[in-house]
């Protein structure tokens, strides 16, 4: 069934209805309060004008009217929600995998990326998976959010109407890297998207460096910066060849971050943890030797 409105429109309609009613109520209550406090101030009104303490019709009125108003708000909220849950028939399918602390998107042709590339003007259904703890897929621009739950497959759908880069946040607290788990939805024109998906020369975000591409895809940049600033893990800048102190088998040892050390760090990070950093890096055992060397080569270039 084709929905009549985008996810953004669905949520915003409900929001403006509720906000409108809210503002009217708030203004009314505030005005009454301020007026009464001024008009019946003890200086102006040394004795109360009345001791009346009940009125059944007033109670009925101010019970019935709010009831009708909240039912209206419930209705708009529910109708809008239904638009978020009815996927258009021609939606494109993308798989999203959330893990501490990065996103990985997999397309039907097997291509993977750290950013969510989508074509403009076409609905997209994102299938949500979690590899470790709860995360949540949240794109404010499209008003969509759904938790990623281990052992469960959830989904959202949205459609980008205009090209652009839209923030994508993890919205379920997941530990020390929670606020690093940020990427973007990249909405490309249909032609650019096709080019990117099939990986031809005109691809939008082509990096010459395979190592850098891997660092993005595998989520390394979620915890390691390239500008020297400290994030969850040490910065990659100047890392290669640096002398540093790590904890190995409970002992503190000085090491040089050469190629062999970096390969160990990537495959078995818990064996040697740089002193002063939390032991939270997951192992990356699935990388091919070529990819591992490409990564280390790129790290070497970051002086």
């Amino acid at each position: 069934m084709q929905p009549l409105q985008t996810t953004t429109e669905a949520v915003d309609t409900a929001f403006y209805v509720i906000l409108g009613i809210d503002l009217v109520m708030l203004l009314g209550i505030m005005t009454a309060m301020i007026w009464f406090v001024w008009r019946y101030n003890r200086k102006r009104q040394p004795l109360p004008l009345s001791q009346k303490d009940k009125n059944l019709w007033l109670e009925i009125t101010w019970t019935v009217i709010p009831t009708l108003l909240v039912m209206l708000m419930f209705w708009y909220g529910w109708e809008g929600y239904l638009s978020l849950r009815r996927i258009p028939d021609d939606a494109m399918h993308i798989k999203a995998s959330a893990r501490m602390w990065s996103w990985l998107f997999t397309y039907d042709n097997g291509k993977t990326a750290g950013k969510l590339y989508v074509p403009v003007g076409r609905p997209v259904k994102v299938e949500l998976h979690a590899e470790d703890v709860l995360h949540s897929f949240y794109v404010p621009a499209f008003r969509v959010k759904r938790d990623t739950v281990p052992g469960m497959t959830n989904w959202v759908w949205f459609e980008a109407e205009k090209p652009g880069s839209y923030d994508l946040f993890c919205a379920e607290y997941c530990g020390v890297g929670h606020s690093s788990m940020v990427t973007t939805v990249e909405a490309l024109s249909a032609a650019e998207f096709q080019a990117w998906l099939t990986g031809t020369e005109e691809a939008a975000d082509r990096t010459a460096d395979r190592g850098e591409e891997l660092a993005r895809q595998q989520g390394c940049l979620g915890c390691h910066s390239t500008d020297g600033s400290r994030k969850v893990g040490p910065s990659f800048k100047g890392l290669f060849g640096e002398t540093t102190t790590v904890t190995r088998d409970g002992q503190q040892v000085t090491v040089t971050a050469d190629a062999a050390y970096l390969a160990r760090s990537i495959r078995e990070p818990a064996a040697e943890v740089v002193v002063g950093y939390p032991p939270v890096m997951p192992p990356f055992t699935g990388l091919s030797e070529a990819d591992l060397q490409a990564l280390i080569g790129w790290l070497r270039s970051l002086q």
């Binding site: 949520v11 109520m25 909220g77 529910w78 919205a171």
Partner: peptide
């Protein structure tokens, strides 16, 4: 009252999706 009225935004299904965990 302000808190309760904003609670209506959070309680409504569609708007909740946007504001939950923000």
């Amino acid at each position: 009252t302000i808190g309760g009225l904003s609670g209506l935004v959070v309680g409504a299904a569609a708007t909740n999706i946007h504001v939950h965990d923000t």
